[in-house]
Computed example of a mutant assay.
Amino acid sequence: MNIERFIEVRKAMGLSQMELAADICTQATLSRFENNGQVPSLKILIKLCNRLNLPLGELFPKVGVKHSETIEKMNQAEFFLITSEYEQAASLLETIASSELLEEPSLSMRCHYLKGFIMIAQPSPITDILFMFDQVLLEEESSEAEIFRLLAYTGIGMVYARENDLEKAEFYFQKVLEKIYQYPTKTIEDTWRVLHIVFQCGVFFAHIKELDISNALLHYAVTICSDNHVTYYLARAAIQLAKNAMIQKEPTAKILERIYDARAYSKINRNTIALAELARMEQEVRLQEDERKY
Rank of each mutant, 00 (worst) to 15 (best):
C111Q: 14
V194N: 00
R110H: 10
A22Y: 03
Q88A: 13
G116F: 09
I255M: 08
R193I: 00
I208H: 06
L101F: 01
E284V: 06
E144V: 09
G57D: 07
P123N: 12
A245K: 09
L275P: 05
S84K: 14
F171H: 14
E277Y: 06
N271V: 02
F60G: 00
Q122G: 06
E170G: 02
L101Q: 09
A235E: 01
A28W: 02
K209W: 00
M158V: 07
L30C: 00
L287I: 10
P105Q: 15
A245H: 01
R10I: 04
D23R: 12
E141W: 11
K43T: 03
V176H: 08
K267I: 03
S41A: 08
V230C: 09
Q88V: 12
Q27T: 10
S99I: 04
D212E: 07
D190R: 08
T272Y: 09
L130E: 10
L48P: 15
I213C: 03
L137M: 13
A97E: 15
E139P: 05
E163Q: 14
F199L: 03
L93W: 11
C25Y: 05
E139H: 15
E34A: 01
Q122L: 09
F204I: 01
H112P: 04
K11C: 06
T252R: 00
F204L: 01
D227K: 13
T95G: 13
Y233S: 04
R51K: 14
I129F: 06
L211G: 03
A245W: 08
K47L: 14
A28P: 07
E94D: 15
N35L: 03
L52F: 10
G157H: 06
A145L: 04
Y220S: 15
I3T: 04
L151M: 08
F199H: 01
A279N: 13
I24M: 11
K43I: 00
N53M: 13
P125A: 13
M74H: 10
A264D: 13
H112M: 05
H67N: 05
A121V: 10
L107G: 05
A89C: 07
W192D: 14
L130W: 04
Q240V: 08
R149D: 15
N36G: 02
N75Y: 13
F131K: 14
Y260I: 12
A77Q: 13
E291I: 06
H112T: 05
F79W: 12
R10D: 08
M158T: 12
V63W: 03
L287K: 15
E140F: 00
I224E: 08
E170R: 14
M246N: 08
Q122E: 14
K47G: 05
